[in-house]
Design a protein around this nucleic acid. Sequence first.
DNA 1: GGATAATCGAGACGGTACGTCAAGTCTTCTT
DNA 2: AAGAAGACTTGACGTACCGTCTCGATTATCC
Lengths: 210, 210, 210, 210
Amino acid sequence: MEKKLEKVENRPGRPRCLDARRAILDATWQILSGEGGFADLTMEGIAERAGVGKTTVYRWWPNKASVAAEAFFTRIEPKVRFRDTGSLREDIRLQIKELCKVLTSRSGRVLRALLGGGQSDPELIDAFRSQWMEPRRVKGREILSKAVLTGEMRSDIDLDVALDALYGPIYLRFLVKHLPLDNSFVDQLCDSAFEGLLAKTPAQRRSRAH
Amino acid sequence: MEKKLEKVENRPGRPRCLDARRAILDATWQILSGEGGFADLTMEGIAERAGVGKTTVYRWWPNKASVAAEAFFTRIEPKVRFRDTGSLREDIRLQIKELCKVLTSRSGRVLRALLGGGQSDPELIDAFRSQWMEPRRVKGREILSKAVLTGEMRSDIDLDVALDALYGPIYLRFLVKHLPLDNSFVDQLCDSAFEGLLAKTPAQRRSRAH
Amino acid sequence: MEKKLEKVENRPGRPRCLDARRAILDATWQILSGEGGFADLTMEGIAERAGVGKTTVYRWWPNKASVAAEAFFTRIEPKVRFRDTGSLREDIRLQIKELCKVLTSRSGRVLRALLGGGQSDPELIDAFRSQWMEPRRVKGREILSKAVLTGEMRSDIDLDVALDALYGPIYLRFLVKHLPLDNSFVDQLCDSAFEGLLAKTPAQRRSRAH
Amino acid sequence: MEKKLEKVENRPGRPRCLDARRAILDATWQILSGEGGFADLTMEGIAERAGVGKTTVYRWWPNKASVAAEAFFTRIEPKVRFRDTGSLREDIRLQIKELCKVLTSRSGRVLRALLGGGQSDPELIDAFRSQWMEPRRVKGREILSKAVLTGEMRSDIDLDVALDALYGPIYLRFLVKHLPLDNSFVDQLCDSAFEGLLAKTPAQRRSRAH
DNA sequence: GGATAATCGAGACGGTACGTCAAGTCTTCTT
DNA sequence: AAGAAGACTTGACGTACCGTCTCGATTATCC
């Protein structure tokens, strides 16, 4: 732990050991990816696995929620990406499928733990919102507003409502686990969200057909 | 605690004290309604607040998740109710608004705690599913399938997907708290879910108008 | 640790496990008898060596000083004994020699630790006074007052001053370790204390001689 | 801390800052004068109160015992002084009273802390012996040996034993606090130490009278 | 009606992890 | 090179709960 020291600022004192930081986040990630999720994550466990004093963990993070959040978001966040196929519907569908892939992977376990922990820890849910959700929604709002301009999407619905309509069902299955988060679900969900649940009149059927 | 004893079976020994049971569930409910959610719920705390020995709690529930679940569901479950106005859309909208009222009340805090705790406790999320969600979905599926028969709702979408499309957004806002769970949201959400996000062609506009 | 449970009073709850108590005091004694004295005594160490939870130690003793005190005094106190040879001087000299034997033994290490710790812990020095010193002084005062009655000892000196005069020098060497606590010291000390430091006139020499 | 730098030798580098040294010793003294004695003295506390880096403390003293010892003895040592009234008894009595005044003052708290700490720290008790006790005893031995030559004091008692007989009782009360360290005690103690505890024969009484 | 048995309260037990404090070391920038 | 600042590992602190256990007391059924 005493090796890689990188200068950050010109202030006195031994500079922060970046290896320690990295080791802590790595250890946290590993534990969080394991069986027990957030329940198996202990500050002592993190410190031990990282080969670091407990104090060092507490020096930089106030509680395990913060460590977990940072461990997760520094490693996951960059992966947001929207396609641009020209069709709003297609772009969104592909993006949602990609999201589902993340949610059903190892990272999903961690995300679930964070969302769960966030229900009794305001800071944690804040982190979830600002570091995970909002960046995605910014991108999503951008895409939707473009679609409004091109006339592909109706303009009388708040973009945030639209985003909730698209992603809410995903997170519901993700958290409650009542049904699988598979491709068929995403396809049907997009169908329903874009075209609506109501039965179409013959005229509508005709107009959608071409 | 030594008063109300009700006979259940004809077996020897002192019968189970129902007052104790009630006191435990009450205490659990109170704690769960507080600030910290599931994190503040401890078996010792329950026992103390209920004026009961810890053993008595453990005798009847294997862990705090079970107590929490029972405390919640014995007190909440009866309140589900659907209207029958003749219009699917209206019925659903009213039901969702009622749900939102529950979610933003004291019970909401507890529900949040359970859903949160459930992310690291399989039994808890099971209880949530089977005791809270599924009963509602049974009713919901019933209503939706009737609407399919009457032709109000399209028939090519899985009912479970439809339910997720309607309720997922609610739970997303409930858990992430990024935006309020108010009536305007519900209205817009229903609009979007029933009619779809896509812009309507003139023909569609006409056919929906009457 | 779960075996020998002895009933003490008729109060509810699992009765106190006396084996645990014993194991804790034993462990404490052993550690205290080791190299580092009080410095090597840790609550965690006591608990581990006793095969006991840390909580159990804290349940019965507020700090390690108390444990140490009890460990010492329950095991040492009974050994006070004065001879009765008829001569005050002889009785005292023998008693002091016995005390020195204790002070230079393993127990001495512990006693030193307690007296040392007592300098920054009022409760500890209280324990030392009430459980170690005072019982001895009671016996000592008794002997001295008898000697006053028989005319062997002068009556114009406070018995507590006399006791300090006899035992103070012992404890000084015990604590400061500037010179050994051997028999020759005790002999000379008694000589000096009983007969005084001043040179004798010829008349005195004569009167003491027979 | 950056002001008074005194050049001691002609060696390269920044010379030792004497202000730092002084500040450290001052801080140590203040802490040691407080409630908790040696137990409240921490290297970190010293450094902070002195406005000094922990490293600076460790550079010049190996452990807190050394700092404590130096803090005490550089400030106390000069005050030893014996009167010379011509009477050994009187000189000693006055000196002891002066000692008692010191012991019951603020310095006494520190001295108690050092003696207490010394019971589990060999270096500390060494310092106490060599820097506090021995200088006094050198002076004391001198006085006593003079008294032996003049015939005032008996010659068959080791001077160190005599010194222990005189000062041991003082330190006993100082450390155990079983009884006060007041003037009456000193008077009685001197009486007893110089004249002995045994009852006087009529002949002795006569010879002492004139 | 006396034995038997399930249940109650209380609370001690061996543990695990908490979050804090200080120890003593090490590394950097400043003087 | 000395000094300050402060990050580092280590280890004990005292606390909170965990889930298990052992009690005496209470309240029923069964013989």
